[in-house]
Design a protein around this nucleic acid. Sequence first.
DNA 1: CAGCCGGACTGATCTGGATCAGCAATCGGA
DNA 2: TCCGATTGCTGATCCAGATCAGTCCGGCTG
Lengths: 250, 250
Amino acid sequence: MPETASLSAIQDSPFARKLAAFVKLSDLDLTAMSDLYRRRRRFAVGVDMIHQGQTNQSAYVVASGWACSYKILPGGSRQIVDIQIPGDFLGLRSVLFRTADHNVEPITLVQASEVKQRDLLNTFSQTPRLATAVLWAASRDEAMVVEHLVDIGRRSATERMAHFLLELGARLRLVGLGTRAGYLCPMSQYLLADALGLSAVHVNRVLRELREEGMLTFQKGRVVFDDYDALVEMAGFDRTYLDQDRPLLL
Amino acid sequence: MPETASLSAIQDSPFARKLAAFVKLSDLDLTAMSDLYRRRRRFAVGVDMIHQGQTNQSAYVVASGWACSYKILPGGSRQIVDIQIPGDFLGLRSVLFRTADHNVEPITLVQASEVKQRDLLNTFSQTPRLATAVLWAASRDEAMVVEHLVDIGRRSATERMAHFLLELGARLRLVGLGTRAGYLCPMSQYLLADALGLSAVHVNRVLRELREEGMLTFQKGRVVFDDYDALVEMAGFDRTYLDQDRPLLL
DNA sequence: CAGCCGGACTGATCTGGATCAGCAATCGGA
DNA sequence: TCCGATTGCTGATCCAGATCAGTCCGGCTG
């Protein structure tokens, strides 16, 4: 039966894996999801996926690759707001508002499914459970932005770095792309700087310190947690908002 | 007819006013909303409405008064993440996740309607339009947190202050509690400091500078925009994400 | 092969905003 | 009516992290 085959394919996608942590998805929900998945597209590094100020943008669900959303301020400097990894929704706000309030740029080659505004709103009205699940995912993203805000507002450069890399690790583990030992991370130190509100120079210093203290090593595109527990302790990392152990809505 | 009378009462509530900027609400939606509105409660200053780490919290829709959500870090310092004014949802994340990831504290006496988890999820499954509207409102809140993040990460203390007070003004105007000239603001300089990641002392300095430059005056619980346009220019304030001129979803 | 370029890395210097310390005005309660 | 608590205001000092000004190394190109 081709239907069930495609259903199980959807079920294994990072997006479904993530949402399944919140709601138990029915076959109807999965079918609706697979409809959203039709229009697959590729984005090369250097070509923005979403442009601040543009109207009628689509949203995307990332299938593979990394991207980052950021804002440019009058003055030239930029702030990276969030990192998108496989399974993440991207540009949801640019669909719900008429104009995009941020940019999204691929960090690596990105493969993603385009979701048009009309399709999204239709799907919501037909499968309310899926709408609730997306609300949950959006809230989870908001929780991460909040954590990021606290990072920048109240944590030292070292704590910030540790917290950021821990969170990324936890997210990657959820979609099977990392372990407690570490993960592959294609971010340059310049990107890290823009994300953490530091200068690239200082990022380098902080990474060296963490390495020398035996906490974590980030070299050659690979993050290795040398002492996970000490890192969690030092960064004040709170796992609860990422560890949804069982679906809330059955 | 008591039904239509109560419907129009709901329609005039700050919450409905806000959501109506996004979707045209049907009578069914409004009825569902009024059901959520039943359980009205009052919160005095000094009594937290939501506690970080607690489980099975309710959410609230603010009818009157101001509150703030914040996080406490190991170390004692706190970061105010967002301000809630009438019409705002509050504690949505603590309902969607099982445990609250932040605190909410009243700034003034707050009157709010309690929304239980079960009621909320039921309402969503019965009125998907309302679910979509709440998703929109949550995304709008996220956009503000993002803006707040950029504030703290990349703007100077003065720009930050200007931006924050402008945004608050725009939000208050949406629910009819302020004008382009200014608004009443019950926040102390200590609260402002916690929100902006500054020290109270520095908040004071910055406010004095803004006053002396003829940009804005914040004294005696009242914000007066002395030169609105100059302020917008200086802060790099982007109105788009708060100015939803017509409903997106009819 | 040389030449180039982008990323990682380092030391010296500068500065925005925190911290500390203290005073004046206002308010609310006994 | 006085006293303590809260908020607003100011100057002096200090430090985390920015900025500047480079070197070093590996990969890519002509």
